[in-house]
């Protein structure tokens, strides 16, 4: 028997299996992302290095993604917990 998946469950699943990825070519290092991170992760530093936000405290709340004025950040599915299985 399968249960229908609610929108809320889908949303939580996205947060759990996603991470924030940067596009350094768009980034002007204004720091709005870091300034608005609720737990103080220096998101801009990851964008400077062109890396995804590899911080175990990241809530993937999407605040930085939403606030960035240049569209630098977006969510991508992570393979950290799934071992590459989608």
């Amino acid at each position: 028997m399968t249960f229908p998946i609610s929108n809320e469950t889908r949303h939580v699943k996205t947060l759990v299996t996603g991470h924030v990825v940067s596009d350094p070519e768009r980034c002007i290092q204004c720091g709005i992302c870091s300034y608005n991170c609720p737990i103080g992760i220096d998101v801009r530093y990851y964008a400077w290095l062109g890396q995804f936000v590899e911080d175990s405290y990241c809530l993937t709340c999407g605040e930085c993604v939403e606030r960035c004025p240049r569209g630098v950040l977006h969510f991508e599915k992570t393979e950290l917990f799934t071992g590459g299985q989608k």
Partner: peptide, 18 residues
């Protein structure tokens, strides 16, 4: 380029420094 956001008040001055 971040000066524009300092001017609007979206970030404080210290945020301009990487």
């Amino acid at each position: 380029p971040g000066l524009a956001y300092y001017l609007t008040g979206e970030i404080p001055e210290k945020q301009l420094f990487l």
